[in-house]
Write a protein that binds this DNA or RNA. Structure first.
Lengths: 223, 223, 223, 223
DNA sequence: GATGAATGAGTGTTCATTCAT
DNA sequence: GATGAATGAACACTCATTCAT
């Protein structure tokens, strides 16, 4: 997760034509923010356009000035969340000086984002039937970041010889379920809006570090 | 995943009153099978009761003879899938003689089940908004199996000292996303109904094994 | 209401073929009693055949052995109630020695029946759209009793010269709404299962007696 | 019935938020008119929203723009009819110069309204199970008018000493059943849309007048 | 005589979307 | 640019009735 590389062609996102006027841009942004919130709390199917426009403080008809329909809005929300989570992770790890530090920073950022945007995974998981393309694009784009990170780390001998694609999906899965269990569920239970508890974070880091670290013998040999 | 322990109280499932007559039991089973299939292909919201009863070959009204409503049907389907996947994993790993063998057998069974029942995760992931209880019960019951497996393995010194709960959620997540990526997506792409490709399976096993294995020094010490 | 005359051709009721066996007759009676109760508490439309058969302690299918359908059952219930209320009123007033006594006894019996069978008017009033024939037959048969009573009382000079038909409908209406207000509503409010309170009864009797009594001058003239 | 007093707080009716636009108000009014007609001819349960919207000439969904549901529509219809019948009676009797004249005018207006709005009582009588509150509010509000009329008439010595509440319910009942018998039933038989025939009206008036008039002795005393 | 599994027509209600203003 | 009245397809669910046992 430290390995996210933002300097690559964006995964295809919805084509967006931004409204020409300032007022229009504000309206569009309000709608998107409202949508994220409503999708997150109600789910795609119970998120009616009326709810969203009410939350956004605009008229019902206004919605269709800015979005062709509900699904396109959904795709846009997923796409935006995806861009932002990748950016958060990338920024967090860019300041790191060691590989380990970068890894920790990336995961921390991921959990923090999950905490701040409960929408992320509740929305993405629903996407299976709403917009499979959006769902795949989301997972693929993040995993791609891991992969390229692992590849370059392997080139430097900092990560052992393991299929980087498989390892990346495994990392993604571990992060997702840990986030679901300790961020989402705890939040819904009424509580702490910060990321995962420290001992969980440390255990996960230990799990990952051990799984990826060059073996002692190899290390010794490479010395 | 090898550690699934079926000899524990079932997580609470929907109370089921089986129909008294053979005919009734057949009808109920048909409805459940149809529901699994329709939920898996259409998703909860697009799975109309009409679709399900048509697929089951019964009249619309018949559905309500056996289930109080759509949500209860969903819960039952999730519960059944959960029971079956845990049983499959448990059975597979019970024949193993070494810990490693058991682990491999458990994961193989999991991917095989995923391949045979694409319903499993497409259904469970939707459950977030349809039936959060069912979703949590599903994940929790499987993770509980892992945890108790890890605990007993740690007692024998076969697994290193790592928080078994965190490790279990990480394993669960890795398995789920690998299954999604290489079983579900590949299947939807038109293809192979078997589990994950061999090289993926081996890479994943290597990932897990390394993450859990007792460290060399500890091993030496324990000698 | 004292004037009910039971010795006249019954208003047409549903043709009834009683079941040949004792057991069958008991089942049929159970169904009728259950129907009266369920119709009274739930109303015609919410009174499902299932509810009725359950209350009667018989199987669903059994219902259709004894009745062609729900509407016919309803008609039978109305018809039975009608026969019984007329009988109760007739019996009560038959023991009276003066006209006034008979009138009081008849009304008392009517209110007592209403109290014991809340079904009567809640059912009859619904009949407007369920079975207009049954509704009309009910009102007409009771009013006919009044009319003939008034006619013979007029012949004896005990009741003044007023159109007996109009007067009968007016009496019927007064009795019905008083019963609704002081028997039904009070019962639903949680309370007293006896008939109307004494002061209400006396006020009503005074109202009726004054309306019907021969005028003083006429009386004097006739002396 | 002459005593209806419209200058009193309305019985609580459904809160109504009138549509802001002219078009909306027209649509709402169309729906109410259609509902009155369909409820009157089909009864509450057979009056489907589709029937009503078709009669109103609007789309099905439009109904739910103006009413939360079928029951609320029903309540509104009952409330409107109630308001209108009380107003009609009140207006009719307000022009009268003597008590008797007022009484006759009030009843005439009542029967005329019944003739013009067959909906009134067929609808109200069903309300027993559909909306007991609405039913009670209807009867109570009319009876309250009678009561206060009787009270002031008694104060002037124009009506004898009889419990005004009981007398009012008796009057209400007499009027209702006479209206049912001679307006509704005759209409359904195919006929005359005017109120009750003259001889019936006169007989009823005589009935009521005699029941309420101060006794001769009292009169003499008061001279 | 008695049963209850099976049925499908019919209902109230929701909501994404359109379009005239 | 912004609005909200109007729409109808679609859906979950009910229940009187049938009929094989």
């Amino acid at each position: 997760m430290n390995h996210v590389d933002i300097n690559r062609p964006e995964p295809l996102g919805p084509e967006v034509i931004l409204p020409p006027t300032k007022r229009g841009q504000r309206t569009r942004a309000n709608l998107l923010a409202a949508a994220e919130s409503v999708f997150a709390t109600s789910g795609y199917h119970d998120a009616s356009i009326v709810k969203i426009t009410e939350e956004a403080g605009v008229g019902l008809g206004t919605f269709y000035v800015y979005f062709p329909g509900k699904k396109e809005l959904f795709d846009q929300v997923v796409f935006d969340l995806n861009r932002r989570v990748r950016q958060a992770m990338s920024e967090a790890s860019s300041g790191a000086t060691t590989r380990l530090e970068a890894e920790r920073a990336g995961f921390r950022a991921f959990f923090a984002f999950t905490a701040a945007h409960p929408a992320l995974y509740s929305i993405v998981r629903q996407a299976e039937f709403v917009s499979p393309e959006a769902m795949r694009a989301h997972y693929t784009s993040i995993v791609d970041g891991y992969i390229s990170g692992l590849l370059s780390a392997q080139a430097k001998g900092e990560v052992r010889d393991i299929d980087p694609t498989v390892a990346s999906w495994a990392l993604m899965g571990a992060g997702e379920l840990i986030g679901m269990r300790w961020v989402q569920w705890e939040q819904q239970a009424g509580g702490r809006p910060e990321g995962v508890p420290d001992h969980v974070f440390e255990a996960l880091m230990s799990f990952i570090e051990t799984a990826l670290a060059p073996s002692a013998s190899v290390k010794e040999e490479s010395v």
